[in-house]
């Protein structure tokens, strides 16, 4: 079943379209930056944006910071919201179930497909923005004569190897965050027969969480908000690596995955399929 889901993913034009759109925004920003040569002032703008003008190798980090707040979760919500509700709408869900595929297996396959989709999306964004960054901004070698190292947020030089390791860790963290959010959308997808409805419900959660994050009055529940630690992947680029929020974020997302995947299972396994 997992293989079937992955084949569906690969054969779906919409998947590749959404990943392509995700890559477009950072590419566009990169072109504008390199044409105008105007980096945002220090301390403002997206993370890493001011640093990429000096070294394009950091552009993947800047690109991820750009797509993480809205566009990546949007793609994940649409994909995960479609998981069950979309199958119900095309009428294929009942045929999978009478094949038979056990309902928990359907859900597990959907979760795996969601994780693979997220990995794919984040990796493609990272690779395209690395290429775009190196082409448009170079490695800083043009000015100094030798490639300047990318600096961490703490000012310490990162060798290309170190940068790659930290980048990989950051990508892993982002994937976990997105799968945590996607499992919420997956749960909504088992509630509704409308893929759009499920995706919109998940986005409503995202927006509500983002609003409450900025609210002082919501400070007590802030550590439990799904979006609270999303940006903590930046902490991989500090020196020494700032693990505290990364650990908390991973724990929180694991909790979201367990609870919402569990809720999706509880609902879907006993649900009457009337689509």
């Amino acid at each position: 079943m997992i293989g079937v889901e992955l084949r569906k993913l690969a054969l779906r034009p919409r998947v590749w379209l959404s990943i392509g759109l995700l890559c477009l925004l950072p590419a566009l920003v990169a072109v504008l930056l390199s044409v105008s040569d105007l980096a945002p002032p220090p301390g403002q703008g997206g993370a890493f944006l001011s640093a990429v003008l000096r070294n394009g190798a950091l552009y993947p980090a800047a690109a991820l910071a750009m797509v993480l707040p809205v566009f990546l979760p949007l793609a994940v919500a649409v994909f995960a919201g479609d998981a069950i509700a979309g199958e119900a709408a095309t009428g294929t869900l009942r045929y999978l179930l009478v094949r038979p595929v056990a309902r928990p297996r359907v859900l597990v396959a959907k979760l795996v497909a969601l994780a693979v989709f997220t990995v794919l999306a984040v990796l493609v964004v990272a690779v395209t923005s690395l290429v775009v960054g190196l082409v448009l901004f170079g490695t800083g070698a043009e000015a100094v004569g030798q490639a300047s190292a990318a600096t961490s947020l703490s000012g310490i030089d990162l060798s290309p190897g170190e940068l790659a390791v930290r980048m990989a860790a950051a990508i892993g963290y982002i994937v976990v965050s997105m799968v945590g959010f996607g499992s919420i959308a997956l749960f909504f997808s088992t509630l509704s027969d409308s893929a759009i409805g499920a995706a919109l419900a998940a986005l409503a959660v995202l927006i509500a969480s983002s609003i409450m994050e900025t609210l002082q009055a919501a400070a007590a529940i802030k550590p439990y908000l799904p979006t609270n630690y999303w940006l903590s992947w930046i902490d991989f680029f500090r020196d020494p690596v700032f693990w505290d929020n990364i650990d908390k974020g991973l724990l929180l997302q694991a909790g979201y995955i367990v609870l919402f995947f569990g809720a999706a299972w509880a609902n879907f396994a006993s649900k009457d399929i009337t689509s």
Binding site: G43, Q44, G45, A47, L153, S154, L231, D235, R238
Partner: peptide
């Protein structure tokens, strides 16, 4: 270190 999402 004063850390923020925009740097430190």
């Amino acid at each position: 270190d004063v850390v923020s999402t925009a740097g430190e």
